[in-house]
Structure formats: structure tokens, C-alpha cells
Simulated scan of single mutants.
Amino acid sequence: MEGFDPGTSFGYEVSQRYDEDPRGDEDATVAFLAGLAGLAGQNSALEFAVGTGRIALPLREAGVRVDGIELSHDMVDRMREKPGGDHVDVTMGDMSRVTTGRTYGLVYLVFNTIGNLLTQDDQVRCFRNAAGHLTEDGVFVVECRIPTAPSRSGHQYLDTEHVGLDYVDLDAGRYDPLTQVLDLHHIRISSEGIRLSPIRLRLAHPPEFDLMARIAGLRLRERWGGWNGEPYTAASWRHISVYERAGGTT
């Protein structure tokens, strides 16, 4: 996408509307993550790309101490405006490179956000960074959609996501099979005009993530099709993968 800047893609305007459309699975996400943090025995967690605190704040309310890493100051500023938002310790920077200097029973990265790292090298670095933040019995959780763009005719598409009385939401995407990068525009057409929300994502399937984990000294412990423990099958639209240290016990 010509002119796209990953450093500003989650700027002020995006931060102000980021929480407008809740996904609806936040409670299940928090319950799943809180359970894992408790099993690790430390009740401590680190969220890569903590954003506006959509998951970090309710997880903290569930009794887990949560730190974050985040690239966008605007997203963190939005979190600070929320109740409890000033209690999350955030390290600013690239989640594939910066460190908090601490270890945690749980490191997690949700909602396709690993795709914001646009090269395989950076995604491998992300796994290594997660591994470096884990306690000996800690786990790294990745949530991501199963890519569909590679199978689209001509590697491009235009989807109608929502239709309301006074608005239409569209997704327009073009996929490059050589780089595995999807250029995507979320488009809202309404009585107020046209709003464009561009994003670039590097898409990968679960086996590639498993190999990245192995490079980082981790291994897959379990994989689910949803936060409520739904089985992961060939029909699953997403995966929730839990990685542990390769020398750990199953």
C-alpha cells in the first residue's frame, strides 16, 4: 500500500474509535487468559500491543498484574483515560524488539496483531521476544484468524461487512503471495461521508507460527478454535495457540 506508515496506522483518530465496536468475546478472552496466568503460579501477564487496554484492563480486574508493550502513544493515551488505565505499566516500542526487563507467567498477543509485523523475520523476532519474557513455566498465547485472502480469485476482494440504515461497511483487500502481505481498507460509507481505515498485515497459517515458535525455543502446547475451548478443526476461522518452552513438561 503506497505511502502506508505502520508507525501512524494507530494514531489519534483510530484510538478514539477503536472501542466503538466490541468484538463480543472479551469476557471469554479474559477468563481464558486469567486461567493460564493462574496456572503459571505468578498471576502476571504481558500484553504485546496493549493498545487501549481492551483486554488488559478487565484482565487486571480479574486479579492479574498486567504490563504492556505498545508502539502507539495515542492508543496508550486512550487507555489512560479509562478507569484503572494508569495502573498498567507500558513500555513504548516495537513488540518484536523492546523489553520490559521482567519475566511473566503469561505473554499474549491477540486479535491478529502479529500480522502488523510485515516480515517473517520480524514475526520470528516477536516469538523470540516473547520467549525472553517468559518464566520457566510461562506460556505465550497467539490469537489469529486463518487467512482466506490467499485463496481469493486474483488475490483481491471486496466484502460487505455490515449494512445499516445509514451506513455500509466494506472491506477491500489485495494480497501479495510473494510477501504474504495483505493491503486492506476498512471502508465506511455513511451520511457523514466516506471513512477509510487502511491496514497492512502479513498473513501466516498456524504451521508457520509453530515453526517460528521452534526457532524461538518454544513448542505448541495446545491449540483451540475459540476462547471457550472450542476444538480447532479444518472449519475453524481462527486459532488460539498456546506455546511453552521446548524443555517444559506437557
Results as ranks from 00 to 15, higher is better:
218 L>G: 04
219 R>Q: 14
203 L>S: 06
217 G>L: 12
201 L>W: 06
199 I>H: 11
220 L>D: 09
186 H>Q: 07
221 R>H: 07
213 A>N: 04
214 R>K: 08
189 I>M: 08
189 I>S: 03
193 G>S: 12
209 F>R: 04
200 R>P: 02
188 R>H: 00
199 I>F: 12
187 I>R: 00
203 L>E: 01
215 I>K: 03
187 I>G: 03
197 S>W: 11
216 A>H: 05
201 L>K: 10
211 L>S: 07
212 M>Y: 12
209 F>C: 01
196 L>V: 11
210 D>T: 10
221 R>A: 15
187 I>Y: 00
202 R>Q: 06
189 I>T: 05
201 L>V: 02
199 I>Q: 13
220 L>V: 11
187 I>E: 01
199 I>D: 13
195 R>K: 14
194 I>G: 02
188 R>L: 02
200 R>L: 12
187 I>P: 00
216 A>C: 09
217 G>K: 06
207 P>K: 04
214 R>V: 11
191 S>D: 10
218 L>P: 07
202 R>H: 05
190 S>G: 13
188 R>W: 01
187 I>F: 03
215 I>S: 05
215 I>A: 09
192 E>Q: 09
218 L>Q: 02
208 E>W: 01
202 R>E: 08
210 D>Y: 10
201 L>G: 02
194 I>E: 07
214 R>P: 00
191 S>F: 08
192 E>S: 13
